[in-house]
Amino acid sequence: MIGWSRRGLAAAAATVAGGLLAAPAIVRAQGNWPNRPVRFVVAYAPGGGTDLTARAMAESLTGRFGQSFVVENRAGANGIVGSEAVARSAPDGYTFVAVTSTHVMNRQIVPNLPFDPTNDFTPIALLARYPLVLMANVDAPFKDVPSLIAYAKTRPPGELAQATSDAQSSYAANQFAKTAGIDLTEVPYRGSGAYLGDLTGGHLKLAWGSTATAMPLLPGGKVKVIAVTSPQRSAFLPDSPTLVECGLPDSLFIGWTGLFGPAKVPQDIAATLNRACSELSATPAMQAR
């Protein structure tokens, strides 16, 4: 289990998310950007929530600018591999990285992090805010938080595993186990897309992911949602209770997905992309995705 400082974690994540909401203050002439394909590096495996969000935005931006926005997955080391590649790239406005709040959380948990999550990047846009979702295999022998806790207490300590895919899901998973008073084994994957086969195939009973990860699995009855980590029920999952409702108020967590460039991306490009992402995120088409 990772030794988190809950107050420090929340403050750090909120600070960076707030920076992503604000458009760059200085705007110069925008020139003809983009005049060649723009690369979005997703720092996690294909098929997960960040990947789906980045691909939806890239598709919308391609339509808006008439230039290709291409997604490339570079998973590994809790998002560090992809983030480091972008931090070291040229700040010319053609390479960006899509990451979760894990991006800033890594500073608290990874010794010798090869970059500064704040100073080595240009914040571009907040793509999504969401609760984390506790999902279960559809055939798991529990249907809600009380029956999950009761089941876990009948099993040998650590026998029941829960999959995570990054620092934010690791935090939520371990905080849930702690506040529920149960012994669960964390199984870290390289991204939520990497554990979906094991979860839907019955090799895993529990996994943590974003709403973007969970929602595509629900129509086919591949998983069931046990609870969400937001203070109120999610508009996307209105029938799923919050952990607060289930008597676990210390399990609150709101994650985010953000877009960053390397440090010193030209302000005019950063402002243009920020404005485009903000406007597209508000459209019904993007909201539905």
Rank of each mutant, 00 (worst) to 15 (best):
G3E: 14
W4S: 13
W4T: 09
S5T: 11
A14L: 11
T15A: 15
T15H: 12
A17I: 06
G18P: 03
G31S: 09
N35E: 14
V38F: 04
F40W: 03
V41A: 06
V42Y: 02
A43T: 12
A45V: 08
A45P: 02
P46A: 10
G48V: 04
T53Q: 09
R55F: 02
A56Y: 02
A56L: 09
A58L: 07
A58M: 05
S60W: 00
T62N: 09
S68D: 15
V71E: 11
A77R: 14
G79Q: 05
I80L: 06
I80Q: 03
A87M: 02
A87D: 01
G93K: 05
Y94K: 04
Y94F: 15
T95V: 14
V97K: 06
S101H: 09
T102Q: 13
H103R: 09
H103G: 08
H103P: 02
N106Y: 03
R107I: 05
V110T: 13
T118Q: 10
T118H: 10
D120M: 10
T122Y: 10
T122K: 05
A125H: 08
A125L: 10
L126P: 03
R129I: 04
R129C: 13
R129V: 13
Y130R: 04
L132I: 03
L134Q: 04
L134N: 01
A136K: 09
A136D: 03
D139L: 11
P141S: 12
F142L: 04
K143L: 08
S147T: 15
I149D: 04
A152P: 07
A152N: 06
R155D: 08
R155M: 14
P156V: 11
E159A: 15
E159Y: 13
T164R: 06
T164P: 00
S165K: 00
D166F: 04
A167K: 01
Q168V: 14
S170E: 10
A173D: 06
N174C: 11
A177C: 12
L184V: 11
V187G: 01
Y189P: 02
S192Q: 11
A194S: 15
A194R: 08
G202I: 07
L204S: 01
K205M: 15
W208K: 03
W208G: 01
S210F: 07
T211K: 00
A212P: 02
T213G: 08
A214G: 09
L218A: 10
G220A: 14
G221S: 10
K222Q: 15
V223N: 05
I226G: 04
V228C: 13
R233W: 10
E245K: 05
C246E: 15
C246G: 06
G247R: 11
L252A: 01
F253N: 05
T257I: 13
L259V: 07
A263Q: 13
D268P: 00
T272G: 01
L273W: 01
N274Y: 12
S281D: 01
S281R: 14
A282C: 11
A285D: 12
Q287Y: 00
Q287K: 15
A288C: 04
A288N: 12
